[in-house]
Design a protein around this nucleic acid. Structure first.
Lengths: 339, 339
DNA sequence: TTGAAAGCGCTAACAG
DNA sequence: CTGTTAGCGCTTTCAA
């Protein structure tokens, strides 16, 4: 049995014996249709299983889709943010399409362009590279919310955690435990500007180290499981281990801890701190001290700001969320190191 | 400075002094354009920053977008699959849009409908509920690949791990270690049919238990962190703990292990097995015995099948991937339990 | 309240 | 090789 082609608004109009304009009004819940008309049209819609084609609607102007760009779907913190956006967007009548990119700027620029080409009604970017000119250009036409970038902007909204404060909380915590040799794991590449969480946490680390009169000790490695492992291996090659490491992100802390543990470094000898408070950090077997930056709230706030924009707000809003330290067993009082 | 509206193909044609048809051919790399023409058009495209609107193209027929539906973006195994699809799809010239749903069938049906309305060129569904009629209907019009469902179908392709074998590997492993009281964590709800990984793993567990002459012991709880915790609490309320638990999924195993550990159950007293081999399972501090079902490969195979369909294949293909057991420290020889 | 008709931006015959 | 033109399916004036 050959399936007939998809029903169009004309098919519905013919079936109901009315004009396409009438059908259009009914399916959009627009004003100016009699009850009788509505009923006939709805019956025809039902009978033909009619659904308006998104592209035809888009070509006339409106869409009800929101594009969300994310640079790494395997990052559990980002997943938390994404997950928090789904329900409120749907409740507001929007369809969310997630577009995954790489970490490089080129793929992110391409992806943002594609979202614009799709005429999405609004855009949320999660932890994008700096593409300031493009942000401005896009946001002049489409409501835009950027998550996890620092800085005040004129034409779009920003939601971010206070990474400088977060780094400071971590350092104060470690210093209070008696630590003086505190390493920081992080890597800044050529595409990374001052507005990234990387740069801000690093800056917070440096400022706090200075404040406490400590020597800065930066281990260059990216925030990933592999990066954390690499950092751990770098440290093991040294003559003396630092007594504490601020790994910059949970995911890196896990890799780092694992390498230390496998190398036989006694638990408690090196205190390790992550960032994000991902669910794994809370497991008793891991018990990683970290910084909670409320991923679910970030997502919810971003959606709220976007919806406000879609309803007409034009002034830019920047929302900085306050992080909190979550102390666990991966940090402890400094132990004197036996050479 | 007011931004001018987006350039259209007519603007480009006017700017280059040629017809819109010529521009269309150039931007599509179609045959029948002189080099001179190509150059002029390309210059105009550049000058006006022209990009074709996706909806207008879609309305004429073709799109280069692939829709991927996933029921839980916070599930690290699913994230692995998603991540493996991005690069090959992009390399083939397609844009991937991920659509997140809930676990319930209603939201999945809605989402699948939305993808169709978007005229995506192809669809990949990851671990969907049973919506057989809709699968058939959709796949008659759009190439469709379903991941993580069992069964042979006529009109679409399937990629799945052999969950029955996986469950069997787990049980054999535990029995070899001397275990006789082996519980299984899992929950089947009304919407769940025989083709789900849940049902198949449960079936594999039951069959293996029978084969080994063991009593079946199913703990009803969902495969999530919370579900694993709930299962752990259920077990703790019993007079005697089973000596081993097959948690059904890593994510549930983590929660379960955590509850047991916090309750003071000595390590090694209860062997626990997960499923999926997510990165966390490999951490030394967790060291969870699990089943590797090659998430990255699943994603890559799904993309490959979809691309084949897009190039014209019409016969349905079902690809079952063989899982392997990954033994780690969370399972050990049975210890006699002290009451 | 209803319908006729124009047109969104692009592609694909078809004619020249 | 190049241009003219008729739509794709829908929304939206504008008249009736």
């Amino acid at each position: 049995m050959q399936r007939s082609r998809r029903a169009t608004i004309r098919d519905v109009a013919a079936h109901a014996g009315v004009s396409t304009a009438a059908v259009s009004k009914v399916i959009r819940n627009a004003y100016g249709v009699s009850d009788a008309m509505r009923e006939r049209v709805e019956a025809a819609v039902e009978a033909l299983d009619f659904r308006p084609l998104a592209s035809a609607r888009a070509l006339r102007g409106s869409t009800a889709t929101i594009g969300v760009m994310v640079n790494d779907v395997t990052n559990p913190y980002l997943a938390l943010i994404l997950d928090a956006m789904r329900v409120p967007l749907a409740a507001a009548g929007f369809t969310m399409f997630i577009s995954a990119t790489g970490l490089d700027r080129a793929s992110q620029e391409r992806t943002l362009g594609l979202l614009v080409d799709q005429q999405v009604a609004g855009i949320i970017l999660i932890a994008p590279r700096d593409m300031h000119a493009q942000f401005e250009r896009v946001s002049r036409e489409i409501p835009l919310v950027v998550i996890a970038r620092h800085g005040e902007y004129e034409t779009f909204d920003v939601v971010a955690g206070d990474d400088r404060l977060g780094a400071s909380l971590v350092m104060d915590h470690l210093v209070r435990l008696g630590h003086r040799e505190i390493a920081f794991v992080g890597q800044i590449d050529a595409e990374m500007d001052a507005g990234t969480p990387h740069a801000v946490r690093r800056g917070g680390y440096l400022a706090a180290a200075k404040r406490h009169g400590l020597a800065a000790d930066i281990v260059e490695a990216e925030w990933s499981n592999a990066g954390g492992r690499a950092a751990g291996e770098q440290l093991l090659r040294r003559e003396t281990l630092p007594t504490a490491v601020f790994a910059g992100a949970d995911i890196a802390a896990f890799g780092l801890l694992d390498v230390l543990q496998r190398a036989g470094v006694p638990a408690g000898q090196v205190s390790v701190v992550g960032y994000d408070d991902t669910p794994v950090a809370a497991l008793e077997a891991i018990s990683l001290t970290t910084v909670d930056q409320a991923g679910a709230e970030v997502g919810a706030v971003a959606v709220q700001l976007l919806l406000e924009r879609l309803e007409g707000r034009t002034e830019a809003v920047t929302r900085i969320l306050e992080p909190t330290l979550v102390p666990r067993r991966s940090t402890s009082r400094r132990v004197s190191v036996v050479e």
